[in-house]
Design a protein around this nucleic acid. Structure first.
Lengths: 198, 198
DNA sequence: TGCGAAACGGACCGTCGGTCCGTATCGTTC
DNA sequence: GAACGATACGGACCGACGGTCCGTTTCGCA
């Protein structure tokens, strides 16, 4: 696989589009009143450029999310405890889910935009797969969830508790403060893990 | 409030649209390739009629869901155990969630179409509010979840475990059989409730 | 400096949700 | 059952948006 490096203007424009889209989604009320034309204009490029670089709207948003998620991913895969791999499951599971929750709180606009693309269920994305697998394998090491099926479903269910639109509803509409929400999620997880986290 | 009864042709058309939409959503792969024009044509009415009767796409889908959900609603509100109000919380909670799961399994196309309308978060609908309140009040009666906040969040989290797109992903894409899925959900709930359901 | 490849950008297209308004139907009154 | 106001019908029409196309520009290598 050759993997040619992109031309300089292409790289610059790609970055510009990223930045513009991030800003626009952050500002606007609902993700769908940010149009592709808006993004192109804000980035100072033509619509053609935008579509050539990313393929379609969904792919653009996905790429954006992926990029913003990158620090978290690396923290989980090779960082220090409590997120990193050296942590025992009973501490790591809550830490992971808390990190996911914080990400969604900090990037509501992006996570929401991603889920709102409609066509693609959030479950078919590569990064959902990654989170789910990791979580499932951790849960499997817990006595209460040793059965493979239990751990698998529990991983889905726990991730579902951090879905972007639920987070948006609670934090945004209901006005639940950040720390409260984190605590509620932590409590819930503790309960699910068998109330042994102390 | 007068509440005039609708004209006969209006009632007939309304019913026709309902039936046509239900069928179309059931047949098509993805909810968004059923257009309003398709529904109008299948129902044998003009597009204008369709929009006058329901307002917009979202409202049409919502009305359809509401109608299909009606039997379940009445079973919960005034039916016999284990769904009805006479059931003790520890049995009623799993029964409710199982019923929700079964509804989504049986009406995947509708629930999916509703969530796919995008604009409206599923959390702002009247019927989500109803389910959540009911569930929360039941959970509050359980010793493990006596704190109001715990019960509130747990209710959201448990409902999230039955989200239509998750159900679709597991039952459809992953091919998990109906009974397996019901069992996994039941196990998960049992765990969350403190593993005391026996 | 020249040249082929790669990227640009905006006019253009098809589709879809939603509206408008002239026409047809209902149902009520005499 | 005739006549008439109120209500509903339906499809031509509209604006917007995602996505494409292709003539023009820029890049970067020799």
């Amino acid at each position: 696989m050759p993997e040619r490096k992109p031309r300089k203007d292409a790289a610059r424009n790609r970055a510009a589009v990223f930045a513009a889209a991030d800003t626009l989604f952050a500002q606007c009320r609902s993700p769908e009143d940010v149009t592709m034309a808006d993004i192109a204009a804000a980035a100072g490029v033509g619509k053609g450029t935008l579509f050539r670089a990313f393929g379609d709207r969904t792919a653009l948003i996905r790429a954006l999310c992926e990029a913003r998620l990158e620090p978290l991913r690396s923290a989980v895969e090779e960082g220090p405890p409590p997120l990193g791999p050296a942590t025992p499951p009973l501490q790591r599971v809550p830490a992971l889910l808390d990190a996911v929750l914080c990400f969604k709180l900090d990037n509501r606009h992006l996570a929401l935009a991603l889920e709102a693309t409609g066509a693609d269920s959030p479950y078919r994305t590569a990064h959902y797969e990654r989170w789910h697998t990791l979580l499932r394998d951790l849960l499997k090491q817990l006595p209460a969830l040793a059965a493979i099926d239990s751990a698998d479903f529990a991983a889905h269910a726990l991730l579902a508790a951090t879905r972007a639109d639920l987070v948006e509803y609670l934090a945004g509409e209901k006005g639940v403060p950040r720390e409260d929400l984190r605590k509620r999620l932590a409590d819930y997880i503790a309960g699910t893990l068998g109330a042994r986290t102390q």
